[in-house]
Design a binder for these strands. Structure first.
Lengths: 158, 158
DNA sequence: GCCGAGGTACTCGGATACGATTTGTCCGAGTTAGAATGG
DNA sequence: CCATTCTAACTCGGACAAATCGTATCCGAGTACCTCGGC
């Protein structure tokens, strides 16, 4: 089980987008992070579909955040890229084989699926507590306090 | 991101194995759950490599749990089947592109990776609190109290 | 009747094809900014 | 000098291949039980 590579790109892109009000095109975001532009575009489209970013077409167009970075959580981004499907899909083994349980008697969810669902909920909850704004602050602090300024300047002069 | 299908099989197999002291061969477990025998064998090998089950060769051989079901957690099984690799692999985007951060200044982990790691830890912790014994009890209760007896009888007469 | 050797049937284990999902790329539709033109 | 039209460049968006991982399968190595023969 591996999380899509684009999740990391999308998160860093959101952090970068939080540093400007101006639309930033895909090509600019791609060279800023040194990733394949066409593939990054695909993920940005997913973010747009999920309502995390808004696309502006035409010259001087690009992507902007739809709401303040403090109101976007990592969960929003991960769900947008990875999709809403749960990790674990119960195939109802109980109802198969020679000892197939009577469907009427096992109407409630399989305990295995329930435990898996609870664990996944814990994962999502943890991601929901971290916002893009917090990520930006932490990244800035980890880099000595010049990362965000650097992004702002770079976006302004390009 | 999708969890391997074999995780569900492995969990149910462990529950079944907890109902007997006698070794149970792959073929028996496969027809009990109505799954492809050869593929189930692959996952059982993984469980054996992880030390969750022990294999006994020769006639009347098969698989048995290496320790009481109350001492085996869902995390043990999931880690055995899915592997130890984390969901999120940080590619250190900060060190790429025109604004590459000085490696000396970002020696600590990227905040994105840290948050992802924390969320994954929450997931693993949730899985670690549920044991195979608890799963067996819940499954029995959900099926009206005759599921475990059914498995025991079926394994005895086959 | 007891012991031992051999055979046999059953078990696991790793090496081998197939399919699906993820990854990566491309070109066309649509839109906006700016320039050129006419009033 | 201003409004209008036109062009042109730039943007996103979805449709199209390649690679990697999960799925499924097979056959060989090894072991314990059972049978048979000898003592």
């Amino acid at each position: 089980m591996k999380l899509s590579n684009g999740v990391e790109w999308a998160l860093h892109c959101c952090v970068s987008l939080s540093q400007t009000e101006h639309p930033v095109p895909t090509l600019r975001l791609a060279e800023l992070h040194d990733v394949p532009p066409a593939y990054l575009a695909k993920h940005l489209q997913a973010l747009a579909r999920a309502g995390v970013v808004r696309s502006t077409q035409g010259q001087d167009g690009g992507y902007t955040l739809t709401r303040p970075a403090a109101e976007i959580t990592m969960l929003d981004v991960v769900a947008a890229i990875d999709g809403p499907a749960p990790f674990f899909r119960c195939t109802e083994i109980r109802r198969r084989g020679p000892l197939a349980a009577d469907p009427a008697r096992c109407a409630n969810r399989c305990p295995v699926a329930r435990a898996m669902g609870a664990a996944e909920l814990a994962w999502r909850a943890a991601l929901g507590t971290v916002t893009i704004a917090e990520l930006a602050t932490d990244i800035d602090a980890a880099s000595g306090g010049d990362a965000l300024v650097g992004v702002r300047d770079w976006l302004r002069e390009h």
